[in-house]
Write a protein that binds this DNA or RNA. Structure first.
Lengths: 340, 340
DNA sequence: GGGCGAGTTGACATCGGTGTCACAACCTGG
DNA sequence: CCAGGTTGTGACACCGATGTCAACTCGCCC
């Protein structure tokens, strides 16, 4: 381990001067600076983070706590987004996956405190309310993809209502007038919000919202798990005499089954049926034939926005500190919707 | 910030004694220990990581460097696996996503050095060779899902050959004798290895390996990207007069298109055609109807094994230090393969 | 020539823990 | 009752950086 002292001895100056060079303190003679910098290079000196942190009593590390990121694979993009923002803040990320276990969660808050992290991002797999309790943690906390029911922390969440609106609006603009919906589980907040979006778009387009055209694609089992029943749901919609010309899906997995149901009935996408996904999971949307038009969940942006907001909360950058930031869900056009 | 001294003053003992209690040093009187422990609790004292690290000159943090985890979403399970192993080692994880940019990579090695991380895991999205160059980093490095062409570091990789063997073997045991293969891009190491696995299983089962029954499901574009052409590849196989009764897929995305091709030809899975996936991406395998039988890429285990190996390399736990660990790819049976 | 300010540098204390070693208190057996 | 050992505790130095403040060297002006 090369230390300040080693460099100082080599350069024939005091440790403090080396420290000044490392920290771009202008009060160093240009010639000295140059000489020291050269030696730093040559000796591969890297300042010790621990010592620095101890002296300055705060860290350049931000803690990121997540529940199980596994179930919705693209939600890790929250982490990539956070990473990307932190990179620009010349910060790094200490990651903690709790698998939703409150005991682990509690322990990680301690770890964060021990590391004196500059702040924390608490990210969840699903857009949902959370209650952090009182995590005795002094620095700022931002919620990503979730929000505090008690409004105790700022949150960054996807604009599900806007996403729903976008889905419906796009189909209406293409001329569709009978639109079926195979939605997510009705208990999810996303379902409720998107439903509101559909209605707004329908109303704007002068369409009648027919509840019988909206069926859930997931059902909750007694054990709490979920079964994907979109295939049968879609069959039901497509076998009606007043068959819809387009189907809005609660997510891309539902779309897979809608495609299958259409194929089973001899209907082809998009000629006989337009299909609109949600989430934009590329392993699905780019794999289906034809490729699926979908509305993206902006996970990356959510992570990115969360760390920016965190910096503001910690007073390290300027800007407003809204209690909630909605991140838009953009339309990603591919080939599963056509004008009618 | 509550410090050792604060606790010591409150407890009427020396800081060193508090330190002993915190570190479970047996040389403390039971009564003293209890009293101090109580005060630690009450004051919410958490030892400062930086100070500890500085004194002991090594950290309880392990660096994890990844290229773009985004493209193959489940590869983040490497991270979850690492996290899980580290949790048991009471360690935490500093994560660095380089997006494959060598400049960022270099900088993160510096960051790792600055943090005096106990070691590093270098994980990639695809199973592939890597050349780390000379990352002037003194602690142990383990490669996860990749391997060093120069054999300079230990690596943990999926047993692709065994996985290929498992795919073929399962179908042969179900009685299939004509098996088609829609493979990944031929340039991938995984493709080569699995090919070897197929051949072994075929030979064991007394099957003739017919090269015309193996077609690529991905083609590389001039710009380096890849196009998924499994639909057409599968159509080709299924329209032959000697149509295969089963198709082995290079991954689950290929299987999606094989399903679609079968449906287009009026063939149903698994009655007319058995389909075997690879990767076990659950958002696909559990979404397809019928659910897809697949061979899992054991990402979680890879991450888990990598940190265990790292601990051995750093001399913190006992055990052999193999230059390469193969992690088996287990069969996950669902409903897309049937006996014939 | 003396004084003053700007520019440059270094001595020293300090951050919050832990290793080392000394020492006091208590026990044991002869 | 004392030598010799065990147990429990604290004083002190130190890890590697940086803030504070003093000191020293100039150049410049009165």
């Amino acid at each position: 381990m090369v230390t300040l002292k080693d460099v100082a001895r080599e350069a024939g100056v005091s440790p403090k001067t080396v420290s000044r060079v490392v920290n771009d303190d202008p009060a160093v003679n240009a010639k000295t600076r140059e000489a020291v910098a050269e030696i730093i290079q040559r000796m591969h000196y890297v300042p010790d983070h621990a010592a620095r942190m101890m002296r300055m009593s705060h860290s350049s590390v931000v803690g990121v706590m997540t529940d199980a990121v596994a179930t919705t694979p693209y939600s890790v993009d929250i982490i990539r987004g956070a990473q990307s923002g932190l990179w620009e803040q010349t910060r790094t990320m200490l990651i903690a996956n709790t698998d939703g276990d409150p005991k682990q969660e509690h322990e990680y808050w301690q770890v964060f405190r021990a590391h004196k992290v500059a702040g924390a991002v608490y990210a969840t797999t699903y857009h949902r309310p959370v209650d952090l309790g009182a995590p005795d943690f002094e620095r700022g906390i931002v919620l990503a993809n979730c929000y505090s029911a008690r409004r105790s922390h700022s949150s960054v969440v996807p604009d599900d209502e806007g996403g729903g609106y976008t889905q419906a609006r796009h189909l209406i603009e293409l001329g569709h007038r009978r639109i079926g919906i195979v939605s997510l589980s009705p208990v999810l907040r996303a379902t409720v919000l998107r439903g509101a979006g559909y209605r707004t778009a329908f109303a704007e387009g002068g369409l009648f919202y027919d509840p019988s055209l909206e069926v859930p694609g997931f059902v909750t089992r007694p054990d709490g798990g979920e079964d994907l029943v979109a295939y049968d749901a879609a069959l039901g919609l497509l076998q009606r005499s007043d068959r819809p010309t387009a189907i809005i899906c609660g997510n891309d997995q539902i779309a897979v089954q809608v495609y299958a149901a259409a194929a089973a009935l001899g209907l082809s996408v998009p000629e006989d049926l337009s299909v609109m996904g949600f989430d934009d999971m590329t392993i699905i949307t780019r794999t289906l034939k034809p490729m699926l038009t979908s509305v993206a969940l902006p996970y990356f942006e959510i992570g990115r926005t969360a760390v920016d907001l965190l910096a503001r909360i910690n007073g390290e950058s300027e800007g407003p500190i809204p209690p909630q930031v909605l991140v838009p869900c953009p339309l990603v056009e591919r080939h599963s919707c056509r004008p009618i």
